[in-house]
Design a protein around this nucleic acid. Structure first.
Lengths: 206, 206, 206, 206
DNA sequence: TCATAAGCGAGACGGTACGTCGTGTCTTACG
DNA sequence: CGTAAGACACGACGTACCGTCTCGCTTATGA
């Protein structure tokens, strides 16, 4: 029972009005992210963000330069893209899991958030790089999947890992944005079975 | 501070005010399109459009409901996408021509216009349909190319025409938007040689 | 206000939104003046003015540079000081009428408006001059009063008209501002009987 | 490197090694008063006061309720009005000294401070009373002057001491505020010779 | 040929969001 | 404990833009 000096405790008790500046940032980002998903970029009002976060506009502008930067940070911080390496035992299973997760992530940004990403990337090149890095961060996943497939002899020789990086997101993006259709399992299977597998595995004429 | 507005050349008489209303529409659309390419959707000011077209905001709003509709119409009218069916004598040549043209068109919307399209499509579903129809309008081109290839026996049996529709634009879009890289001939060849042809032609392992 | 309302010719809609720009100015000034009297200078919110005048802040700022200028113009336009020359047949009667009217005018600016005048005069030298000119405009009144009194032989020889200009306002101002007391008839009589008349008429000691 | 040299510590306290709070108050008031004279009431920022006094806003708000109270206290503490009873041997000399001192005091609050007083009095009735008490505190001076004059037989019978209280400040205030002119000796002589003395001394027609 | 009607350039206007700033409260760290 | 430092909520300010509206001018039509 160290009676002595527990002042080092950072008052984890939530009851009182805490006012650290590390938490506020995150709370504001969450508020921004949720409103973003609700109403989209254009209709996102900073007053509404401040109100929902019980923050003040001054605080927002103390941390971010404007709407675009706030949205960029919000998406960066609250986006649910995770880097999980699937291992289902087969190339097809891995691809289905990987593409499926990507699809649900992107489709989760359905509708309004998409425009937000575009705007945020356009107005914040640094955020654009971040987003692209997020994309690049999937590289190890892809290589792990392909590595195991190669070990199992499922892979066509000389196939490029970069292919997966491009095709999956491109098609999903196309589907959601240009076609405006939701991304469902059938579409994921279509990508995997009709496009990726034929490109990766030994000729389907087998 | 405020933008410089030095165009206050009153020209009480001088510039003869013509009174046709059919041309005005097009001039306004051109002004909107050019400004759109210059500054993007967000920074596009209807005052600036009116000023550049030497028109009045009232005239603009007499013809279109708002910014989104104006941009939609501008892109629709001024976009350079043409529907030309290439015939080079080989599947690869046709694909290179087709994808190359698509790439240069999309890449021509470099930077700002892309966001414009997103916003316009989001705010104007009818325009979104129009854009998607533009996409669909390429269907006959694709079918013509594949038809000739099939006649030449270049095609793998059972390949889907829909594939071309999805993959080309998706990859180009990905390249321009997500990666932020320009679309050059090498990339077009990459799409054709490494992705499209392997999917369309009998397996190269043969 | 009491102005002729000839605008009924235009706007056939009747209840429709009228939009002349000459009247708006006056309506805004009235709104500002009334709110000014209600809440004072500090508590005067331009939003409130805009709201009461059913105007927009942009319109206010298009016409005036800021709060001080708006208040200055409002006081200038809406102040009720009129230049009426009293003629009661006696010097005392004229003085009572003149000082009484001045007193009720100044006292009408009771409380809040006084601070407004100070601020407006400090922030708008041109308005300060206007206010001082308003003061000067009473000169003819004074001279008329004194002229008639002289003709009646009521006046002490060599008395200065400038005296009236200074003493009346100074005392009233002092009373309202520094003492914070209302200006009533007794005080007006005090000024006239105990100060002005002794200074103007042949010595009452006789 | 030197180890025990604690003199390099910033020690912003400077001259005050101990932490008394009686001096701080005065330093803050001085800072407020000086800034007040510099920039006026409206432009007086509490941050600036805190900064100049090397104090914290919290300290200020621990001692005073707000800007008005701070300014009131500052003027109360730092104002240079003194209560000195002149004795020149003649009524005219006493009046010249008394009015002259009052004039220089008021005129010393030239420009910005005047608005400050108005605002402070309006927002702090208690301060308004204080200011009026300051005015009232001159009563003994007036009575002393008049008493000596009466003893010398300079005074007209039945003249009111209250007259002096009202006329002097009223005229000076008028001069400075409404006319915007500086108060010089000539004006002081004008008040004394043309207004006060005629009202106080036996009729000049004698 | 002139008058009436309509379209247009110009721009003021109401409304609303933005981004800045100042006040007054509150928390942390220091002495 | 009292203080310096400064983050914070609240809210007003002044700016910018959108979409509506009215004016005055010009042009195209009908008698």
């Amino acid at each position: 029972m160290g009676l002595a000096n527990e002042s080092s405790v950072t008052t984890p008790k939530g009851a009182g009005p805490r006012s650290m500046n590390e938490d506020r940032e995150m709370e504001i980002l969450r508020a921004a992210y949720e409103l973003l998903a609700d109403v989209g970029y254009e209709a996102l009002r900073l007053d509404a963000v401040a109100n929902r976060a019980k923050a003040s506009k001054a605080t927002i502008y103390r941390h971010w330069a404007g709407k675009a930067e706030l949205v960029a940070a919000a998406v960066r911080s609250c986006s649910t893209v995770e880097t999980h390496i699937p291992d289902t035992g087969s190339l097809r299973g891995d691809l289905l899991a990987s593409v499926g997760h990507l699809a649900s992530s992107i489709a989760g940004y359905d509708g309004p958030v998409f425009a937000a990403l575009i705007m945020a990337m356009r107005n914040d090149p640094e955020f654009a790089n971040q987003m692209r890095a997020m994309q690049v961060s999937k590289r190890p996943i892809i290589e792990a999947i392909l590595g195991r497939a190669q070990a199992r002899g499922e892979l066509k020789p000389g196939c490029d890992a970069g292919l997966l990086e491009e095709i999956g997101p491109g098609l999903i993006f196309m589907h959601v944005f240009a076609l405006g259709e939701p991304v469902d399992d059938a579409f994921v299977r279509h990508i995997v079975d009709d496009i990726l597998l034929p490109l990766l595995t030994p000729c389907g004429c087998q």
